[in-house]
């Protein structure tokens, strides 16, 4: 496959007008005109990127994606839900509904391609690294494990990045 065909494929992919994602946060007020309110959530769309100056790779969620809803009906965009994102005329993404698929695990496998200078080239496959953000409502057991029982309210959510608990959100 040539670089040109790769670029053409990338162009086709960039024409996508919908994405599937996983809601990572509770809806938060984004803006209001006094009468109507617009809420937004962070959405994991399964895209990785460099997350710090050290060049560490992690999942980069879309931040503050507005939720298309009326009557404050935001239930569908709750934490952990699979949602559909649609690109509007301005090229902005917004959450427009539910989805039956969502980003799952993300695994990176390094491969050292040989340079074929001398001898028999043998590619080396490294250890896989699992990325991904998991947001779950904490169970009673986790509430007890990660804080004094009763200190963290029931309904708090735990954020796991790459399988490691990084954050507890209680509101």
């Amino acid at each position: 496959m040539t670089i040109l065909s790769n670029i053409v494929e990338a162009e086709v992919r960039s024409e996508k007008s919908t994405l599937e994602g996983k809601v990572l946060t509770r809806p938060a007020l984004l803006y209001t005109d006094g009468l109507n309110v617009t809420y937004a959530v962070d959405v994991d769309i399964g895209q990785e990127g460099k997350i710090n100056a050290n060049g560490d790779i992690g999942i980069l969620p879309l931040k503050n994606v507005p939720i298309a809803a009326n009557n404050g009906e935001l239930r569908y965009a709750e934490i952990g839900q699979a949602v559909t994102l649609t690109k509007n005329d301005l090229g902005h993404w917004e959450v427009t509904g539910l989805s039956k698929t969502m980003p799952g695990t993300f695994t990176m496998v390094p491969v050292t391609l040989p340079d074929y200078c001398l001898g028999i080239p043998v590619p080396v496959i490294g250890d896989p690294t699992e990325l991904g953000i998991e947001v779950v409502i904490m169970t009673y057991s986790e509430l007890a494990d990660y804080g004094l029982y009763g200190e963290i309210p029931y309904g708090a959510v735990a954020v796991f990045e790459n399988g490691v608990l990084t954050e507890i959100r209680s509101s």
């Binding site: 699979a82 698929t101 969502m102 980003p103 695990t105 695994t107 390094p110 491969v111 050292t112």
Partner: peptide, 24 residues
């Protein structure tokens, strides 16, 4: 219950990011 769309990325670790070309 929903289906998760998993991603597995195999990448050449001896190629600079700016030179990387990807097939999806």
């Amino acid at each position: 219950y929903v289906n998760a769309k998993n991603t597995t990325l195999a990448y050449a670790d001896n190629i600079a990011d700016w030179a990387a070309s990807e097939v999806e």
